[in-house]
Simulated assay, not measured.
Amino acid sequence: MRVVIDGALVESPADLHQVLAGPLDFGPYYGRNLDALWDRLSRDVERPVEIVWENAEVSRGRMGDEAFEAIASVLVRAAEEDEPNAPDERLTVRFT
């Protein structure tokens, strides 16, 4: 599965959680915070999945460096944990 985030439409962390929750099927009890994001990405999301955050710098500018980096670090950390896995069992993340 490939999930594309259009950074031109993401102005806040809440926007980002909304964009990911649907396609990755986070369910109705998703907490919409960094801990919940980590839990879903590291345990619940079926692999393979590629997350592509297009226009990431636009999102960074709108939500601020601190919020952007906090979310990006969760995405990157989840991808790094999957690096030893076979390609069809990985979560990957790209920022463009």
Rank of each mutant, 00 (worst) to 15 (best):
M1T: 11
R2W: 07
V3A: 10
V3W: 08
V4L: 13
I5E: 03
D6W: 01
G7W: 00
G7N: 00
G7L: 01
G7P: 04
G7Q: 05
A8R: 01
A8G: 06
L9I: 00
V10A: 02
E11C: 00
P13F: 03
P13S: 14
P13C: 13
P13D: 12
P13R: 15
A14M: 09
A14G: 09
L16S: 03
L16M: 09
L16P: 06
Q18S: 15
V19A: 09
G22T: 08
P23R: 06
L24N: 08
F26C: 13
F26T: 02
G27V: 03
G27D: 09
P28W: 05
Y30C: 14
Y30M: 11
G31K: 12
R32P: 07
L34F: 04
L34E: 04
L34T: 03
D35Y: 04
A36G: 11
A36W: 02
A36S: 15
L37C: 13
D39F: 06
R43G: 02
R43V: 12
V45E: 01
V45C: 04
V45A: 00
V45K: 02
R47Y: 04
V49P: 08
E50C: 12
V52S: 11
V52L: 15
E54S: 11
N55E: 06
E57K: 07
E57F: 00
S59G: 12
S59E: 02
S59Q: 01
G61Q: 03
R62V: 00
M63D: 00
M63Y: 02
D65F: 01
D65C: 04
A67Q: 10
A67H: 07
E69Y: 05
I71F: 05
I71Y: 00
S73A: 14
V74Y: 02
V74L: 11
L75R: 07
V76W: 01
V76A: 13
V76R: 15
A78Q: 04
A79G: 06
E80F: 14
E81D: 11
E81R: 15
D82G: 13
D82F: 13
A86C: 09
A86E: 03
D88F: 14
D88H: 15
D88K: 10
E89A: 14
R90S: 02
R90A: 01
L91N: 05
F95N: 10
T96L: 15
T96S: 14
